[in-house]
Design a protein around this nucleic acid. Structure first.
Length: 154
DNA sequence: GCCAACGTTGGC
DNA sequence: GCCAACGTTGGC
């Protein structure tokens, strides 16, 4: 089992939106970065991910999701006029992938980026690396446990 | 709204 | 294959 972190801008799709989704499940479409895509493709059913709100006030880790369907073609890439359309993609050459994720929990209290930066045990986390913009990336099991612990404490 | 830090594109 | 210009991400 592996752990990940996935980012979404809450104005685009928040964890509350996920909670309202059918079966609390959604496809994670729109990743248009090769490195992030490759991480999506490496995800296995049962893997868990931290759901992170980027470009939020404040930016924060807000919950945990589980991978319920492994990578398959992101068909939004060839949907005419769609915001995630990529003219180089087609059903024959999908280029981009997505997975389905299901909500496991919304943290009782979100953990702000500022708070995360102060946690010694999270040193080395990709999210906290200066200049990091990767919207999907792995998280070590140890770091994942730290998130779970932080989410519980007042 | 600013801008640092990227990633991508396209001319050469 | 280099790299300047451009576009995007995302914190502040």
């Amino acid at each position: 089992m592996h752990y990940w972190l996935i980012k979404s801008e809450p104005t685009t799709f928040s964890i509350q939106d996920l909670a309202r989704s059918k079966n609390k499940t959604t496809c994670w479409e729109g990743v248009r970065n090769y490195q992030a895509r490759n991480f999506l493709r490496a995800m296995k059913k049962g893997d868990r991910a931290i759901f992170y709100h980027s470009n939020a006030k404040p930016p924060a880790a807000v919950g945990i999701v589980e991978v319920v369907k492994e990578a398959y073609p992101d068909h939004f890439a060839w949907k005419e006029g769609h915001k995630y359309q990529d003219l180089k993609a087609s059903p024959e050459k999908p280029i981009w992938s997505m997975v389905d994720v299901k909500l496991i929990q919304i943290f009782p209290q979100e953990i702000s980026l500022e708070q995360l930066r102060g946690v010694k045990a999270l040193e080395g986390l990709e999210l906290l690396r200066r200049g990091s913009r990767l919207s999907v990336h792995p998280v070590s099991a140890a770091h994942f446990k730290v998130f779970e612990r932080l989410a519980k404490q007042k």
